[in-house]
């Protein structure tokens, strides 16, 4: 082998892994969403350890007050209850939304972004490579817009439920949460559910010219957010009722990822999984 050939061979052996990595990143633009999801989980788990140590609760925010210092994640609703009740309703609504929305969005990023492999690839490969990040960014913003609206709705619902029903015993609270997952199980058998599931695979034409690119990606994100809400709202609502219990969040995430990527959309397996979750919560409530 000549010296030149040897140099060329060495050069190839050094550059090949880098090129492979570049190609992997280009071919799998969904890494964006998985990275953001991982980051959200780090935030959640990081706060979990900080706050669980102080309060003994593995939950995200449910109640809080504008007075004094409020921890966003992992605090106990019961310890804040007395202060909270002194506030006027309008102030409590605003506070609920203001302080509840961020944890809600972190939860959405953590749980829902891993479900977006296909729509993200659709956007990424519909536009010029240099515009890929703009398209994906627009899509994710649109997706978050839908879920933000849903979050406001859920937080208000949760607030008024609390206002009407008042404080619940540990058992009643567990029973309501278990009922939420039971409803999620029933929803799996709903005849319209497979159609909603196929809509998770919808695509849309994306224009590649200038600001059209961003807008089309954004609207596609809004649409896909709505499609995801249509299929996932019941377990997400159940999670709100469970005060965003973090181990439960993790289980629900695993179940919906399994449902999205590994099961035919006519499968009832996820229904049984929700039943197991409901039964477990019910038993925990009794104990």
């Amino acid at each position: 082998m000549s010296a030149d050939a040897g140099v060329a061979a060495n050069s190839n052996s050094f550059s090949f892994p880098a090129e492979k990595m570049r190609m992997l990143i280009i071919k799998h633009p969904e890494w964006w969403a998985w990275f953001l999801s991982l980051f959200a989980w780090v935030l959640i788990v990081g706060n979990l350890f900080t706050n669980a140590h102080q309060t003994g609760h593995l939950s995200m925010i449910t109640y809080c007050t504008p007075r004094g210092i409020v921890k966003v994640l992992g605090h106990s609703p019961f310890e804040l209850h007395a202060v909270w009740k002194e506030e006027p309703v309008s102030s409590r609504i605003l506070t609920t939304i203001r302080t509840g929305l961020l944890p809600w969005m972190i939860m959405v990023v953590a749980m829902m972004f891993p479900l977006l492999n296909e729509p993200i690839k659709h956007v990424a490969f519909s536009v010029k490579r240099k515009d890929m990040d703009l398209g994906i960014g627009g899509f994710l913003i649109g997706y978050i817009i839908t879920w933000t609206a849903v979050g406001v709705m859920f937080l208000l619902l949760s607030f008024f439920l609390n206002l009407i029903i008042g404080d619940l015993s540990h058992f009643a609270s567990a029973l309501i949460t278990a009922s939420g997952f039971l409803l999620a199980a029933v929803f799996i058998w709903h005849p319209g559910r497979p159609i909603k599931m196929t809509k998770c695979g919808q695509t849309a034409p994306i224009r590649i010219q200038g600001w059209h690119l961003f807008l089309d990606s954004l609207f596609y994100g809004v649409k896909m957010g709505f499609n995801c809400f249509n299929t996932c709202w019941v377990p997400m609502a159940a999670l709100v009722l469970a005060h965003h219990n973090i181990p439960l969040m993790f289980i629900v995430t695993a179940v919906i990822i399994h449902d999205r990527y590994l099961l035919p959309h006519t499968s009832k397996f996820t229904g049984y999984a929700w039943m197991v979750v409901a039964a477990t919560l019910f038993i925990i409530g009794i104990l």
Partner: peptide
């Protein structure tokens, strides 16, 4: 047409 078998896209 969206259905059990396709997204309608």
């Amino acid at each position: 047409t969206p259905s059990v078998h396709q997204s309608g896209s």
